[in-house]
């Protein structure tokens, strides 16, 4: 492609430029779509510290906050898994609502009262189902 006296390459340049623009805008749309899916956070507003969890006499989680989340957030179900590293690796899972194919999980850490005066970190994995 050779330019004319004005540096204009005519139809060929227009075609190449259009293809470059189309390719880049296509890539950007894919990138933007992926980013919006990643940025979507159904657990926005969830406060792990407000979740009533007890581990002193076995793991217990009050479901009242979980039901409140179902009412206020755009989710259909929620499950909370609590494990206590070193002391109770297996842990327990509590679920409310319905389990769908759109899970979104987030992990939190809370220091809770354990047996014999210990205060140990509990790892709380919250899965929201959209």
């Amino acid at each position: 492609m050779n330019g004319d006296s004005h540096g204009d390459m005519g139809f060929a340049e227009a075609i190449v430029s259009m293809m470059a623009v189309a390719a880049v805008i296509g890539l950007y749309l894919v990138f933007a779509a992926t980013s919006s899916v990643v940025a979507y956070d159904p657990l926005e507003g969830f406060d792990a510290d407000a979740l009533e969890a007890y581990i002193a006499d076995g793991i217990e989680v009050s479901e009242s906050y979980m039901f409140m989340c179902l009412g206020t957030m755009d989710i259909r179900g929620m499950s909370v898994s609590v494990s206590i590293p070193h002391f109770d690796e297996k842990g327990c899972t509590f679920s409310v609502g319905s389990i769908t194919d759109l899970p979104y999980s987030q992990t939190y850490i809370r220091v809770l009262d354990y047996d014999n005066g210990r205060k140990v970190p509990a790892v709380i994995e919250v899965i929201a189902y959209g």
């Binding site: 390459m9 340049e13 430029s17």
Partner: peptide
């Protein structure tokens, strides 16, 4: 402005 320069400006915006 040639189509090529126009294209480059667009890429910068993206």
């Amino acid at each position: 402005v040639t189509a090529y320069v126009d294209c480059m400006l667009f890429l910068m915006v993206i």
